[in-house]
Structure formats: structure tokens, C-alpha cells
């Protein structure tokens, strides 16, 4: 279709925006990754990434991001289903309740989690008051997962809920009428139909949690490092090295792109399957 002049003009601000704030920074990231402090071409930055220490950071981040994403999914999926089957008035209330934590800055929520989980924090004070032994929670990977799940859970619930509330209840009735048990209604009808929501939910949780930095510093105590922390320290540390920081970001971006490509692959094949069955 040929676009009219007006249509092109209307798109111009968006194109300028994308070039300035998306394409240009990306070019800078690539440029910095392959140059050294004097601006000469080098692959040393990328090479340094493949030493054992840095590979371990990537593995650590991947592990924690994966665990957080799965925990989010396990919590969010039943919740989203329950919400989507409520009366409309209650659905609105529930969505609002999920949104409220998002209105608060995540730095503040993370800081609050610190106070909650500390050895002298709220939970342990409670335990002490009722005569239980204190449990050490802060500065462990578990605390980081709790922080990430809390921050990113809404991003998992909302897309799944949106897709599920679009499922016509008549379909579920029809499935039961045709002899599906409750379990089969869930696995054969609801799950395939909500898959697109699950996929976007996973993407929206996995991507920020693999690159998270503040949560891991505050709740993990900085005794183990994730990729986001490392990148941050190369951009606002005492010795700023944009070149190595950019190389880290570049590899992280490629990693995220790869995992998204894998996700898309599965969601696409799912759609095809669905069409064929119809």
C-alpha cells in the first residue's frame, strides 16, 4: 500500500524518536564494545567476557531470572484464571489491587523488603515475639528471588488475565458439554488459548529480571553479583570503563534476543497447530 504524505508526516516524530533514542544508543553500545580506552579497534573487551568469572555471572543471572520467572508464572496463572472468572465489578477491583504496587517506585519497595527480611527485621521480630528461632533470609539468593517476584509479578498477571478474560465462557461450557472433565477443560481449552498471554508475561518478567541490578544489590547484599550490577559498576563506578560495560550490555542484549527468539518460535508453532486442528 502506498502511504500518503500525511501518513508519512505523522510517522516522522516516531522515526526521529527511534533514531535518536533507540538506534543511536545501540550504535554507541556496539562502537564502545569494540574499542579500547584510546578508541582503537579491539576484541579484548568481548574476549574478557569469556573468562570464568564473567561466565559465572551470566550463569548466576540466568539461574535467578529463570527461577523468578517460573515462580511468577506459578503464582500468576491460577490468580489470573480466578480473576477472569469473577464478576466484572470484582475484576476491576482486583486489577486495581495488582496495579497499586506498580505506582510505588521499585527502589522503595526493595528497600522495604530489606527491612522486612533482615535478621532484626519485621519477620524475625515477629518470630522472636512468638518464641520461634530467627531465620536468616537477607543477603541470600532466596531474598533476591522474593524481591524480583514481588516487583515483576504484576507484569505476569496482567497479560495472562487480559487474554483469559477474552476467552468466551461459552467455550468452556461447550467443552464440558462435550464430555471434558474439569482438568481437561483447563489443559485442552484454557491453557492453549491463554498461551499468548503466558508468552508475553514470561518475556515481560524474564527480561527485566535477568538485567536487574538494584534488587540484587540490596537484598543480596552485594556478596554475589549479577550481570546488571556488573554493568552498573562499569558505568558509574570509581573507574568508569564504558568499553567493557558496553561489551557486557551487548552480550546481555544478544542473550535476551536469543531467549525471545526461542519463545517466539514456540508460540508460533503453537498457533499453527491450533489452526490445523480447526
Amino acid at each position: 500500500m502506498k502511504r500518503s504524505f500525511m501518513q508519512r508526516a505523522a510517522a516522522a516524530p516516531h522515526i526521529v524518536w527511534s533514531v535518536l533514542f533507540i538506534i543511536a544508543p545501540l550504535i554507541f553500545v556496539v562502537y564502545y564494545s569494540f574499542t579500547d580506552l584510546d578508541g582503537a579497534f579491539t576484541t579484548e573487551n568481548i574476549g574478557r567476557l569469556f573468562t570464568s568469572n564473567y561466565v559465572l555471572i551470566f550463569v548466576n543471572s540466568l539461574c535467578l531470572a529463570l527461577i523468578s520467572t517460573v515462580v511468577c508464572l506459578v503464582i500468576a496463572y491460577p490468580l489470573a484464571y480466578i480473576f477472569s472468572r469473577m464478576k466484572e465489578k470484582w475484576q476491576r477491583v482486583m486489577v486495581l489491587l495488582i496495579m497499586i504496587p506498580l505506582w510505588m517506585n521499585f527502589l522503595i519497595t526493595t528497600y522495604s523488603w530489606m527491612t522486612i527480611l533482615e535478621d532484626t527485621g519485621i519477620i524475625n521480630s515477629l518470630f522472636k515475639a512468638i518464641g520461634l528461632d530467627p531465620v536468616h533470609m537477607i543477603n541470600t539468593p532466596g531474598a533476591v528471588v522474593v524481591g524480583m517476584v514481588f516487583c515483576y509479578l504484576p507484569y505476569m498477571i496482567l497479560p495472562i488475565y487480559t487474554v483469559m478474560s477474552g476467552i468466551d465462557p461459552k467455550l468452556l461450557e461447550a467443552a464440558s458439554d462435550l464430555g471434558c472433565s474439569g482438568w481437561h477443560v483447563m489443559t485442552r481449552v484454557v491453557m492453549p488459548m491463554s498461551l499468548s498471554g503466558v508468552i508475553s508475561g514470561i518475556t515481560m518478567v524474564f527480561v527485566p529480571s535477568i538485567s536487574t541490578f538494584y534488587i540484587s544489590q540490596k537484598l543480596g547484599g552485594g556478596t554475589f553479583q549479577l550481570i546488571g550490577d556488573t554493568i552498573e559498576s562499569y558505568f558509574v563506578g570509581t573507574a568508569i570503563n564504558y568499553h567493557f560495560g558496553a561489551a557486557l550490555s551487548l552480550v546481555l542484549m544478544i542473550l535476551i534476543l536469543l531467549s525471545m527468539a526461542v519463545m517466539n518460535h514456540y508460540s508460533d508453532s503453537e498457533d499453527e497447530g491450533g489452526r490445523r486442528i480447526k
Binding site: 559465572l56 550463569v59 548466576n60 539461574c63 527461577i67 539468593p141 552485594g222 563506578g237 570509581t238
Partner: peptide, 29 residues
């Protein structure tokens, strides 16, 4: 300064997570 920061980073990133984290990840995968 760059050397100092690298040495500091090296110190910070030494040591992995508890084994249980890796076990859980493998099970999930």
C-alpha cells in the same frame, strides 16, 4: 583507575551462588 576497578570487580564477582540454586535451576529446565 581502570586497573583498580577491574581488581575490585574481580573480587566482587568471585564466588558463585549456593549449589541449591543451581540444582533448582537444572530441575526447572
Amino acid at each position: 583507575l581502570d586497573m583498580i576497578n577491574s581488581l575490585w570487580e574481580e573480587m566482587k564477582i568471585t564466588g558463585g551462588l549456593p549449589t541449591s540454586v543451581y540444582v533448582i535451576t537444572v530441575v526447572l529446565v
